[in-house]
Simulated scan of single mutants.
Amino acid sequence: MPRLPHTLSDGMEIAVELKRSAKKNLILRPVDAQTIAINLPPFVSERRLHTWLRGNETLLRQTLAKGAKTLPAADSLPDWIWYHGIPTALTACERETVCLRPSEILIPDQTAARQKQRLRRFLNERAAEYLLPRLAEHAAALNLHPAAMALSNAKTFWGVCRSRTGIRLNWRLVGAPEYVADYVCIHELCHLPHPNHSPRFWSMVNAHTPHTEAAKSWLKAHGRELFALG
């Protein structure tokens, strides 16, 4: 099945799996948190499809959210997760707290559901330490000041910028390498003067980070894996 890359307004890369057997209307189906399957009529050109995708982002996000709900199994814990861009083993042990070691996270030997709950809480705390100071540092360097800075539990975006509510970063970016976290921070900050994805917006992003394409490629390759805990 052909796959078409598409970038949402917040810079999140998703994949669109195409099938051409629909008679009249486009039919959407969620695959996972970053993939949508679309069945479209043969007469719809790829250019027209791109226009439709740009004009129906709300529907795309709703469909992605449905796919995200099916990702993690509640009765199992993954063998490893990404942490700061490093594959990090998850090891059950006889202890009462979650403990971070080089390339390993120790978790109390409990049910998988309880382990996920405790690990998510631990990673949210680490995300606040990893992402928010980084965002504040970039904001000071760019002399751009969002109304607020916080984390989000979003299923369909890595960051969001609103003039009234400020910038929120997806806590799951605690798993991404530093250059990816930096890119998302700068991407959202550049939306303060440019609330769009115009050439001026991308010019500003690229002026402040040399890692735009590398970061987008990493998220495209590994972004789904950051949702291993739901």
Rank of each mutant, 00 (worst) to 15 (best):
Y183T: 07
R164G: 01
W82F: 13
K116Y: 01
R47A: 14
P72H: 12
V160N: 11
L192G: 12
L59R: 12
R61K: 15
A214E: 05
E125P: 05
A228I: 11
A74R: 11
N25K: 10
K216Y: 02
K69T: 01
P177T: 09
A207V: 09
A139M: 00
D79W: 00
L4F: 12
H187W: 12
L226C: 14
I81C: 12
D10L: 06
L71T: 10
S203A: 14
N153M: 04
E13Q: 15
N25T: 11
Q115I: 04
L119N: 12
I107W: 03
F227T: 11
V174Q: 06
V31Q: 01
L100G: 03
G166P: 06
G11E: 11
A37G: 07
N56C: 08
N56H: 15
A74Y: 04
V16H: 04
L64D: 06
A73P: 02
D75I: 10
T111Q: 07
H194C: 15
F157M: 14
W171V: 10
I186H: 06
L192V: 15
P2T: 02
E104R: 13
A221Q: 13
N25L: 09
G85I: 10
M12I: 00
E129C: 01
R224Y: 00
H138G: 00
N206R: 15
G67D: 04
T63Q: 04
K69C: 10
M1A: 12
W52Y: 14
S103K: 05
F201T: 02
A140W: 02
A127Y: 11
H208Q: 10
A228N: 03
A73I: 15
Q62P: 03
I14K: 02
I38D: 10
A113I: 09
E104Q: 15
K24T: 15
A139F: 00
L40W: 09
G230L: 00
I107M: 08
A150W: 05
R162M: 05
Q34V: 07
T35N: 06
T97F: 15
A127L: 08
L132V: 04
G67H: 01
T51L: 07
L142P: 01
H84V: 00
L53P: 14
L106Q: 13
A136R: 14
R48I: 02
R126A: 10
C99E: 13
P78W: 13
L26E: 07
G175P: 14
L90S: 12
W171Y: 11
N39Q: 01
W171I: 04
A181D: 07
P195V: 10
Y130N: 08
A37T: 09
